[in-house]
Design a binder for these strands. Sequence first.
DNA 1: GCGCTGAACATAGCATTGCTATGCCATGTA
DNA 2: TACATGGCATAGCAATGCTATGTTCAGCGC
Lengths: 212, 212
Amino acid sequence: MARPKDPAVRTQLIERAAVMLRAREPITLRSLVAGTGVSTMAVYTHFHGMDGLWQAVRQEGFTRLGARLASVATSDDPVRDLTALAAAYLDNALTHPDLYRVMFDASVDLEDLPAADATLEHLVQAAGRGRDAGRVRADVVPLDLAIQSWAIGHGLVSLVATGPLPREALDHGPLLLSALFTACGDDPERARASVEQGWHRPAPDDEVPRPG
Amino acid sequence: MARPKDPAVRTQLIERAAVMLRAREPITLRSLVAGTGVSTMAVYTHFHGMDGLWQAVRQEGFTRLGARLASVATSDDPVRDLTALAAAYLDNALTHPDLYRVMFDASVDLEDLPAADATLEHLVQAAGRGRDAGRVRADVVPLDLAIQSWAIGHGLVSLVATGPLPREALDHGPLLLSALFTACGDDPERARASVEQGWHRPAPDDEVPRPG
DNA sequence: GCGCTGAACATAGCATTGCTATGCCATGTA
DNA sequence: TACATGGCATAGCAATGCTATGTTCAGCGC
């Protein structure tokens, strides 16, 4: 009955926005559609304006983060796994700092909550396995432990990626995590060993040439 | 030799920007100077443009945060004090969420680093007293403990103030802090008691009517 | 198979944005 | 008191997000 939207246009614009974000190019309505062959109106048919585009970009950021976390293999050591998830979280944020900032800097509106929850779910699963394995006390709610791990990871990486702390501050991660796991009932030395196994120093930023 | 700048204009503009930020009004060059009696050029003579204004607003945010932290009384229990500083940090961020976002959301440029360091210094002092009092091990570097406390506080409050977590997530603060202090050598029960004394539930947001 | 409907898309123009060029004038110095 | 210098006001610029209007093309009834 009418001409259908081209889904490729939507993904193309999101992808291009992500690329421009990474290249530190300012993302304006006109610069976004320049070179794509579509006009500015496409942004309005697909996203209802620039706000909707940013929301879609945030969604894409959470999707990629979810994929990154899903790629973390689960082992028979849930504490190690939870640490590895936190490390992957940091790594993702440092690899895509601009995308990460868009995800969390702007006020997260209600539309984004499910995406954020899906991210958290990965941590909740690992925390649950930690409880099942007896590594943390039975009265520890997996969601709580997940949130606590998230707060540590987010606090560290946001102070480093877009904040005042130098990159070395990330080295505080293992101590903070093992402190948390110990407080939740794990044996201190065992927690420390698991964290050391799961932790890996985040990779340095990809070098992206600035425009101009 | 020439007409001196009026310092009152500068503080007036910063103050007005903070008020507008709090009222969630969009801060534009023209809306900022509207009603002040000064023209748009004042922003350029005093701040060299809007970027400089935002920088000054960030500076003001750090200044107020520093004043808030300075108002935290020191006691004979450094662990309690460090907790109270963290609680004051959260309280400040929740009382001025928009100012807090401006402080940390935008890339912190080099000009802002001294202000951020001054904030951190309050925590470093308390951490140092904690070490002097033997509450944490002698090999714990005060700066490290301060950064770790900061990461916990910032992670929690930024996920709550401008992020996806509900306000109740702040209740994880005591556990995270006491876990940290315990990991740094304090007696677990003693740490828990000190944290409980220093912690106070942040006050709810001031109700500010939205424009329009 | 054909014309109609209606949504996707292109074009053009709007108000508003941050910024700059220019002129005026107050103020400290000589 | 005359001058020079920099703060401040005015006006206008390019660029921004958005909307009004026109054009085109996919899908349905006959």
